[in-house]
Design a binder for these strands. Sequence first.
DNA 1: AGAGTGGGCCTTTTT
DNA 2: GGCCCACTCT
Length: 687
Amino acid sequence: MPHPPSARRVALRAAPGARRRIDYASQLNREQLEAVMHPGGPMLVLAGAGSGKTRTLVYRVARLLEDGVSPTEVLLLTFTNRAAREMLERVGKLLGQDASRVMGGTFHSVGNRLLRRWAEQIGYRPNYGILDREDARDLMGAALADVVPTPPARRLPGAAQLVELYSLCINTGRSLAEVVPARFPQFASDTDTIAEVFRRYLERKRAANLMDYDDLLLNWLLLLRRHADTRRALQARFAHILVDEYQDTNRLQADIVDTMVGERRNLVVVGDDAQSIYAFRGAEFANILSFPERYPDCATFRLESNYRSLPPILDLANASISHNKRQFPKNLRALREGGELPVVCAAPSPEDQAAFVASHILELIDEDIPLAELAVLYRSHSHSLEIEVELARRNIPYEVRSGLRFFEQRHVKDVLAHLRFVANPADEVAFTRMARLRPRLGQRLVARLWERLRASGDALYAMLNLDPAGTGLPAGAAHSAGELAQLVGRLERMRTRPGEMVREVVGSWYREYVRATLDNAASRLDDLEQLALFADGYEEVSAFLDEVTLMNELSGEDVAAVEGEKQKVTLSTVHQAKGLEWRVVFVVWLAESRFPSARAEDVEEERRLFYVACTRAKDTLLLCYPFAARDRYRVDVILEPSRFLSELPGHLYQRWQVEATQTSPALPVEGRYALPGFLTDDDGEVN
DNA sequence: AGAGTGGGCCTTTTT
DNA sequence: GGCCCACTCT
């Protein structure tokens, strides 16, 4: 295969043909092998669903290491930290040696690791804290109150909307003047006020030595742009950069990659424009479409053999995605043979839909299909509700991969706020959260107390030496502040034992607070014990905190370190199912206004989401929807089948109909409305 | 003055 | 479960 001239610039440190441990040719197909063995330079790998994209990346990293590239010279950017960890484990197994010295992870976690080292160059102290979305919202709320102390009659965007808007501007590199009219036209006349709130937000963030998720990217890029020596050092260190899920990178991430690669330009980007599902947070699949323009000498590889799905599933997915106008033409072929047509199943109600899913799962269990090979996917977290109820009722073990994650739960964040303050005493957000838990300390008094501590120059020192009577607070509040100061003093001496810190917070008072104030106290306290056990694995409080803020995909189960094959059905949003596969996949709530969502701004992105959902299935795909449901006002409404179903040719699926159960709510089944047209044949008979 | 509480109303997708 | 508002308690 001819290579562009640039490829020859790459010097491999071992002679080609050196003795190799891995037999690449027998373990990869021709397309994959070419991508793995290509010497270097810019490479675009267009990898259809189930085409062995991960395998190709794993083998390429292994191939580089076998050819003498040092693990520390490789940077692997993935969509989740878990994906990076698993890929590097596979590399290690292939090579029979540890590959964990390869730097791998999400853009955010890699950015964090680099910024910890070079924080001073961009005006931060190295012990900066990281704000998750909720913390960012709180700080934005404070900034909003600074600018607009008394809310005007006219509606302004709330803190959560402001964070979304801010994040979109940063990630797309577009100005407020561009983004506001497009995304929040109702606030077009408030652009100046919004800009002022953002300025306050930036000031407060700086003063508190805090970075939000966007800063981990933005400051990374600024570090590269403003410090030529650092840029050259990083370009020299990372001789090979590989980016997975490139179709979901945004402008900022693409700029970071373009700057990191340096002159050697050993860059591999892998992706599939048909699976781009994060435009709502600024991802631009134009990045992948325009890659050949930015790297005119790039070598392009197409992985078009699908190893995952049986042909009828792929036929349906391909037919669906062909309705999208903006896409690369592609020709994804199923390599497996056989299989039954996907099922489209209409149910009278959400409860009947859930009953169908549950009873069908029981049948699959009888056929000896492991629970871990089953998944139920949906558009929105709330769609899991009836399914969860029904699975629980029938004692089918399940795991919800969506919704509030372990480290985002209130009790976990309350306890962590104490650790965050000790790790970064400038952290106003953590201090406020921690102090507000105490009796008689409300929003205003905490703000006053913080102002005193901050003005002293060293909030931690001031806190440790706090004289409650001298705070000028009312007696009850002063007492609370004194107790808090003592706890902080004890925590300060435990910095190297984060697990002990968690136990100290819980044991000294938070346990009683949970029992008195929160529901499900017992399970929350269990969570906190798991948190302490997890924290025991770290020798420094800030290392532990980085992990819990950036490794959000860890669920409580992971924290509990449950090993072995989890025998549970998976319930997940389609977004969180990206990159995963199961033998049997149910997609539920496939009704207009639910999937596609009524709030969706781009139907093509919704269709790509449906495509991602379908292509998760290996053997069996079941597409379900209720044709009636209660809306948010608890009024029964009739639902149309999703356009993603009705636009499909009928020969691509088989139709099943579910009977209403006795327990389902009374529905006007007789005569008042017709069954959705595509469910019936010409005589009106259900097929 | 400011903390705390209860009721009404809304909820897409996430590093 | 969160947010906003009105009301009551300290």
